[in-house]
């Protein structure tokens, strides 16, 4: 896998953890929220491998529940480990986002 897509995956993982932290959500909801925040280039399907991995690592758990609109859906919520992973992601992201932004802009690249 290319470095670029690995980086993207890591960031997406952090975003998904944040969304679920805010409130338990199902797959479709998560993809809608990602898009609402402007991550429109990410294909909707790409969240599912990530959701599976987060479940396998016990950072989130999924539970089939009846949704308000009717059909049974799989709602995800954070586990204890998930909270910890989100905290770590947050700290790393905080530490990295401004320096990276500055470096990229200072290099004269701006669109």
């Amino acid at each position: 896998m290319s470095l670029r897509s690995q980086m993207l995956k890591g960031i997406l993982e952090g975003c998904i953890l944040s969304i679920i932290h805010h409130q338990p959500a199902y797959g479709y909801e998560i993809s809608v929220i990602l898009q609402e925040y402007g991550l429109e280039n990410i294909s909707e399907g790409s969240i599912y491998p990530i959701l599976l991995r987060l479940q396998r690592e016990h950072l989130i758990i999924g539970e089939m529940r009846k949704s308000e609109s009717g059909p049974k859906r799989k709602y995800y919520q954070l586990t204890e480990d998930g909270h910890e992973a989100l905290r770590e992601f947050f700290l790393q992201w905080e530490a990295i986002k401004n320096p990276v932004d500055n470096i990229v802009h200072q290099g004269g690249y701006d669109v």
Binding site: Y28, S31, S43, L52, G62
Partner: peptide, 24 residues
């Protein structure tokens, strides 16, 4: 569970005029 989840997603997307290639 995964297959049903993907199906629900696709159904929802279909109702918004998107197709499987857009999603997956």
């Amino acid at each position: 569970e995964l297959l049903l989840e993907l199906l629900e997603h696709l159904l929802q997307a279909q109702s918004e005029g998107k197709n499987a290639i857009d999603i997956f």
